[in-house]
Design a protein around this nucleic acid. Structure first.
Lengths: 246, 246
DNA sequence: ACCATGCCAAATGTGCACATTTTTTTATTA
DNA sequence: TAATAAAAAAATGTGCACATTTGGCATGGT
């Protein structure tokens, strides 16, 4: 009786662990510099260590975790320089997107962008900060997606997810909303098919955001309680009645 | 005496296998659609199957191989649409790079670009096709690198390596050289700090290349002899007299 | 007291055996 | 004969045992 349910092909399990850790990263629950050891994580998620291992390496390949050979995974501690580079990359990419959009802009596209702007303004007016932050970021995604090129959309997605993590370290939380007017100005320039103005406005917009970057002083808490961070996530596989609070 | 040299930490081995397969991909030795099974590759390279497995998945994460769960790795068979998208992404990215370069351009940068153009012209004049192809691609890399942003450089690098593979399928080999004049025109526009012209020239340049794309008829040979393809690579580890004949 | 050196515990890396899934081959039937 | 189904073969996925490396700690020498 040695066979006991091993090799159960369950790709959803990999994905669940991946998403859980990624979400913790994106929501800033994992502080920069935190060590992510394999064994504890395996215990927390109730999966094998190999499973965790694979996910960790995947996140490392995506540059969302810092992998050091024989020394495991850590939440990266980006320098201000790193953050600036990501922002610059975003800025450059958007300039390119705009250069292509002015050639393709039509009433349908403009209508969609206007609709988005209306949403943004509505959220701002009713003081819904959460929605504002979300819509503000979505605007830039909307711009690339307008080109209908998955390659470009994915590139921006990677960039955004990385800056999300960084923002939690460097950006003062209260101000992380793009000014709606600036977004409106970009759309206006597109409407006029004025590429230079569109790029200039976009550039100013980004520089404005970049200018607000500053080192968040709260980088003290080194050792985090991983179990607490991933607590809301229900264990994927029970560990044979291990410490089940009755 | 059960321990027999397992777990030998050798990161160079991973890297060697990775590089070997990647190079075969980039050089077009692996035809589109070729199945890359784990076991044969392990035998060819003389490493464990797990080693191959890891490398294959890494290449899959980089979108250089197409991974299908439970069905292994294949060399992707990009559609013409896919190739166009990669080229468009490259074009868009370069437009963004130019928009940033016009703001930063100075004599030092111009001198370097001129030097590169001179190299390109020299290679073209002496009919060195190999050098021409290499330098022609390097020009675009040079442009991004001028910004000194590793994020952007890496983005372009990914794009280029992908299109390299695709080119072998779709681009008529003989013509895959960018016209030097077009590169020169881009630099000239930069010298004048004329962003619109730089973007327009760059755009024309890419459209010119894209226009030459056409499906290469030689997509017949499905089953390749992997052993022959990787032949020049010396086996990394002898197989400990396993399967002693006799 | 301070730095160097040699163990010991803990964490990461790897090969292997086996489960699962897919693909190919063979057998059966309309 | 062609189509379908069952069985065999092959390939991929996973957990585990063990090797290797790393980091900390105690010990001894200058």
């Amino acid at each position: 009786m040695r066979a006991q349910r091993i090799g159960k092909a369950n790709p959803a399990e990999d994905e669940a662990v991946y998403q859980a850790i990624l979400r913790a990263l994106l929501e800033g629950k994992l502080k920069a510099g935190t060590k992510l050891a394999e064994t504890p994580l395996a215990a927390i998620f109730g999966v094998s260590r190999e499973r965790i291992r694979k996910v960790l390496h995947r996140l490392g390949a995506e540059r969302r975790l810092e992998m050091i050979p024989n020394r495991g995974a850590r939440v990266p501690r980006p320098t201000l320089e790193d953050v600036r580079r990501v922002y610059e990359a975003h800025r450059v990419l958007e300039a390119g997107v705009l250069s292509q959009l002015v050639l393709r802009i039509d009433n349908v596209l403009l209508a969609r962008l206007d609709a988005h702007l209306a949403e943004e303004r509505a959220a701002a007016q009713r003081g819904d900060r959460a929605a504002s932050v979300r819509l503000s970021g979505a605007f830039h995604v909307h711009l690339v997606d307008s080109l209908g090129n998955p390659e470009l959309s994915r590139m921006l997605g990677d960039l955004l997810s990385r800056s999300s993590v960084m923002v939690s370290v460097y950006e003062p939380a209260a101000q992380s909303i793009c000014a709606v007017d600036e977004h409106g100005a970009i759309v206006a320039a597109l409407r006029d098919r004025d590429l230079l103005r569109a790029i200039a406005v976009s550039r100013e917009h980004f520089l404005h955001v970049e200018g607000r970057l500053q080192l968040d002083a709260t980088e003290s808490s080194e050792s985090e309680d991983l179990a607490a961070i991933f607590a809301p996530v229900k264990p994927l596989r029970r560990k044979a009645r291990s410490a089940q609070s009755g």
